[in-house]
């Protein structure tokens, strides 16, 4: 009880601090220098309609590489910990007929939508991370429908490794053929607003999408705990 009172007291103080910041906050009416540079020079330099994608993939491309690496580390650690403490649980109840039929109907459509989102990442809201998450949600739906089905990890590890490798290779191609690491001006900018435009940005985002989709899928599979290929652990 006293712990709860202390927590409420702490939160009340935090609330006062945060709202006192909010009361003096002035909404800006113009962009700062860096953002203004990105917005106004990016369409001519890179040719991507979505300025956020240009920032994520090219101007701050190294951040994105680090981010994908963190996601990779998380998926490896989750896989490793679940692999070390693997014990076969009792068979789980199958999904209902409605869920099974719906899942098998929706699976290809969700994959298609995920691919659409990451291929159009430089033109519309979306991109590799969002598309990858949508793809992983398709796998999650099939797992919910058939909880006892064994899905192999190997396929996802292969896609993950290949697309990570290609991502770094494309970055090095930018270093050799254009201005620097992960520079997307290796390919010509193309017509502004078309799918085949913005140089390497859609290519990089396709591989980011595949990589993120494979990583999130393998996290989902690891947490599901029914993947094949692990040794049985007995205490």
């Amino acid at each position: 009880m006293i712990k709860k009172a202390l927590a409420v007291l702490l939160l009340a103080q935090l609330c006062t601090i945060l709202f006192s910041f909010l009361s003096v906050y002035q909404e800006p009416t113009s962009l700062n220098a860096v953002s203004s540079h990105y917005i106004h020079n990016e369409p001519k330099e890179l040719g991507a309609a979505n300025a956020v994608t240009a920032v994520v993939v090219t101007y701050r491309g190294l951040d994105t590489l680090g981010e994908v690496t963190i996601l990779f580390a998380a998926s490896v650690v989750v896989g490793l910990l679940m692999f070390l403490h693997k014990n076969e649980s009792a068979p789980r109840r199958d999904g209902s007929e409605l869920l099974k039929t719906g899942a098998s109907l929706l699976f290809p459509l969700i994959l298609l939508f995920g691919a659409y989102v990451f291929i159009n990442g430089h033109l519309s809201p979306g991109g590799g991370f969002q598309g990858g998450a949508i793809i992983a949600s398709a796998l999650m739906l099939t797992i919910l429908a058939n909880p006892n089905r064994h899905v192999g990890h190997g396929f996802f590890w292969a896609i993950e490794s290949i697309s990570g490798f290609v991502f770094v290779l494309l970055g090095i191609a930018g270093l050799v053929l254009a201005g620097g690491f992960l520079d997307s001006r290796v390919l010509p900018p193309g017509t502004f607003g078309h799918v085949a435009s913005a140089g390497l940005i859609p290519v990089i985002y396709i591989f980011v999408g595949l990589k993120v989709g494979a990583e999130l899928s393998s996290v989902v599979l690891s947490l599901h705990g029914k993947s094949e290929g692990g040794v049985q652990h007995h205490d």
């Binding site: 240009a54 951040d63 994105t64």
Partner: peptide, 23 residues
């Protein structure tokens, strides 16, 4: 666009941490 790009990164890292904690 810069905070939006940053938040995209932050969402992914938050997801990694959540998966780790759930494990």
């Amino acid at each position: 666009p810069v905070p939006q790009a940053l938040v995209l990164t932050a969402i992914v890292i938050g997801l990694g941490i959540s998966a780790f904690m759930l494990t």
